Computed example of a mutant assay.
Amino acid sequence: MSAEISFFGLFMQASLLVKAVMIMLLAMSVISWTMIFQRSSALNSASKQSRVFEDRFWSGVELSNLYHEVTHKVGDLSASENLFKAGFKEFARVRKGSNSSPEAVMDATYRSMRVSLSRETEKLETHLPFLATVGSISPYIGLFGTVWGIMNAFIALGEVQQATLAMVAPGIAEALIATAMGLFAAIPAVISYNRFSHKVEKLENNLHNFMEEFSAILHRQAMSKPATNPANQHGA
Rank of each mutant, 00 (worst) to 15 (best):
L183F: 14
E201I: 00
S47Y: 11
S59G: 07
S45H: 09
T228Q: 00
S112W: 00
V94P: 04
A169N: 03
T34I: 09
E212I: 10
M167I: 11
F214I: 10
D107N: 11
T109H: 06
L143S: 02
L176H: 07
T71I: 15
F53D: 02
A42K: 09
A216I: 05
H72F: 13
D107R: 10
A20G: 15
S116N: 04
N206M: 11
E62A: 14
A108R: 10
S192P: 05
F214E: 03
E204V: 12
T34G: 13
I23L: 14
R51F: 03
A180F: 15
L218Q: 06
Q49S: 15
E201L: 07
N99V: 05
Y110A: 01
M12S: 14
M1T: 09
S47H: 10
V134G: 08
S80P: 04
E4C: 08
F53H: 08
A178S: 15
V61F: 01
M35Y: 14
K19C: 01
T71K: 15
E90L: 02
F184K: 02
S136R: 06
Q221C: 09
R95E: 01
S215H: 11
D76Q: 10
F37P: 03
S50P: 02
Y140G: 03
I137E: 02
V190C: 07
H208V: 14
Q161Y: 12
I191Y: 10
A236N: 13
M106W: 07
Y193S: 10
A189Q: 03
S224D: 11
V18P: 01
A86D: 07
S41R: 12
E54T: 12
S2C: 06
A42H: 07
T228G: 03
L131D: 05
L83G: 05
H127I: 01
L117Y: 04
S29M: 01
S40Q: 07
